[in-house]
Design a protein around this nucleic acid. Sequence first.
DNA 1: CAGAGCTCCTGAGCGC
DNA 2: TGCGCTCAGGAGCTCT
Length: 345
Amino acid sequence: MPELPEVETVRAGLAPALTNAVIKSVEIFDVRSLKRHLPGPSDFVQTLVGARILAVVRRGKFLWMPLQIAGDTNPGETSLALVGHLGMSGQMLLRLPGAEPDKCNRVTMVVEAAGPAQLSNGDAFSGGGFAAGELIEFRFIDQRIFGSLAIDRLINTADAGPGGFQAEFGSSSSDLLGDSAPTSPPSLWWFNRLPETAAHISRDALDPAFDVKALMKRLSTKQTGIKRALLDQQLISGVGNIYADEALWATKLHYDQTAATISSAKIKELYENVVSILRAAVAQGGTSFDEQYKNVNGESGYFAVSLNAYGQTGQPCKRCATLIKREQWANRGSHFCPRCQKLRP
DNA sequence: CAGAGCTCCTGAGCGC
DNA sequence: TGCGCTCAGGAGCTCT
């Protein structure tokens, strides 16, 4: 299931190839993948053809590409982006035209690569291995069709900070590997904006502007289980079922422990575990537990070998050797050690 | 308003 | 071989 590390791996793979690329054609194989694009499929195609992709940005599990629409001399006023969410089973692949078809391919865009170049901030840019003028197929693959593509307006962030993370324009909003201090934003119109449809979600766990104190304060009154809170993208974004189970195991918390009953010290520890687990997964290129997740070349990540709880049903807990248990919870599974992670009154 | 539950969806895997 | 059942869950919506 794509969570923050998987989506970041995709983002990092797409950005060098797609930044400054121009969309030549769009083919829709299943309109259900455009369900979030309310004006409909033909508007989607019409808007995108001829548009230039300016960047690839991510917050939590949302990805977006700020656009300069064909013939538009003031994209900052138009303020549009192609927004993608992978849902449960989405993939975004880059293929050469004429490559083998992929199963469950819902949308294909052919783009013309800009090739290696200088970015507007003066940084050198690789072009992702594609020469200027070379055609690339961007394929949106999605078995279960929980993911989507849509065109959405970019609006100003509530805190005036960067909309999301990207690494190509010299300034990062996300402390992915823990060593990057955010620098002053370049004068790019999309920099401090994010899609309207993603504006309600919190900054993600790896964002240096993430407000830990605000999270602690909100959790201190939450009368819901801690796992439900971790999965609430409005409280902290980027965490899904796998990394929630892992972080709860690391912190020795039961998934159904009422958030308000957990000490602030323990909440802080939980947050720190979320951060370190996500960082480790980003560094390894994401998890590929169920073979659903692939990077832009269709390759799997290798984080699955490091999982301590998720998918470890019946395996001995790596701390105490008690067998890891899986319980049905909120229409999904929760994996935990019944001895290390006891429900407390 | 907060919290719980429902719903969208389909290919892989398995048992018979 | 083939059929039918089960399973995976992100996020928005609806109900209480």
